[in-house]
Design a protein around this nucleic acid. Structure first.
Lengths: 189, 189
DNA sequence: CCTGCGATGTCATTGAATGACATCACACGT
DNA sequence: ACGTGTGATGTCATTCAATGACATCGCAGG
């Protein structure tokens, strides 16, 4: 480690979250974030590719966790059952982080640019799901649909989790949302 | 209209498509696009909010068309049946535009920034679907799921349409994809 | 003929993002 | 203990997206 305060990336993340919350994403400059973190703007870009990415650092961990769970599902599992396992496995990652998640979602919801980036992350996740399912031998189109649907369930359940006033269980919301999905196609062709 | 060549927005769109195709999105500057269209860079931003938006001009028309079809579905239709009507209705908008769609998709696929914007457009569409379904009296969570699923079907079918070598019928692909969706949840809980 | 309005041009500015190069403390081998 | 290299950072310069303020000009309508 260098001659400076350690964990510059962490300090930058904290500073960005605080400033985005206080004054909004657009009216926060990278220079401000860097100042508060005690580094220069150039250093900000050495840790995060752009001004948005600072809020999406943990997303690879999320993907990895879900893909591990998906890979661990028995070969006999249907595509949706495998997806279900991945969804339930990832729920535990958010244990005790509901407050942080809510603050983060508030910032993202308030900023179109950040919503775009979030969508991109979810799309990457869906693509990864898609590929993983195909490697399990699932037919291409079915794999894509299962992946997209699975991500949609994640988003719906997650949104309920951060929105509802009382503290619900994320895994339980995942199960409930999956159940609603099953009901959706029951009566249509 | 003014003293200049008419349809500046159209010329800017053509110029942008051409340059994005020739040299890629990132290596194309707004100044170049404006030059080729015979206007100044400032004028570019009067017609399009940013460098990406020039490729997504027709998306409101798309939304409108689908929402009209959704509103026209009989009240007795299930959520997914209403979504199905919207999907089939919009297919005709793409009649004869497959070549253009392919070129456009090629540019978008090659550029992460453009993929993000595309995702945002789809998300807006899903939100509009969601609201329209709720206005039909569909329960909130079910409406969201139906909307997200419907958009996923659109994307899958559209991707097949621009990807497959022989010229398939988009509406037919929509039906086929919906059928696969129905099969997906048949065996899972 | 005049006048207002709309579309454009011109000018200036901010801020994101990136490349090139300098710097400096710590770790490591000798 | 003494170089020395390496990695994280600072400094400087630059490009380009995006936006605000103001001028211009010609057509439409009175």
């Amino acid at each position: 480690m260098g001659r400076w305060e350690p964990d510059a990336a962490g300090r930058l993340r904290e500073a960005a979250m605080a400033l985005y919350t206080e004054q909004g994403f657009e009216r926060t400059t990278v220079a401000e974030i860097a100042d508060r973190a005690g580094v220069t703007a150039r250093t900000f870009f050495r840790h995060y590719a752009d001004k948005r990415e600072v809020l999406f650092a943990g997303s690879e961990e999320l993907s990895r966790h879900m893909l591990d769970a998906l890979a661990a599902a028995p070969p006999s599992a249907t595509p949706l059952e495998a997806v279900r396992a991945a969804l339930l496995a990832v729920a535990e990652l958010f244990d005790g982080r509901r407050d942080f998640s809510r603050r983060r979602q508030a910032v993202i919801a308030a900023t179109p640019e950040l919503r775009e980036r979030e969508l991109h992350k979810f799309a990457s996740l869906a693509t990864a799901f898609d590929e993983a399912l195909r490697e399990r031998g699932v037919a291409p189109v079915v794999a894509t649909l299962a992946a997209e649907t699975g991500v949609a369930v994640f988003r719906v359940a997650f949104e309920r989790w951060v929105t509802e006033p009382d503290e619900p269980d994320l895994a339980e919301l995942m199960r409930a949302t999956l159940a609603e999905l099953a009901g959706l196609t029951a009566s249509a062709d």
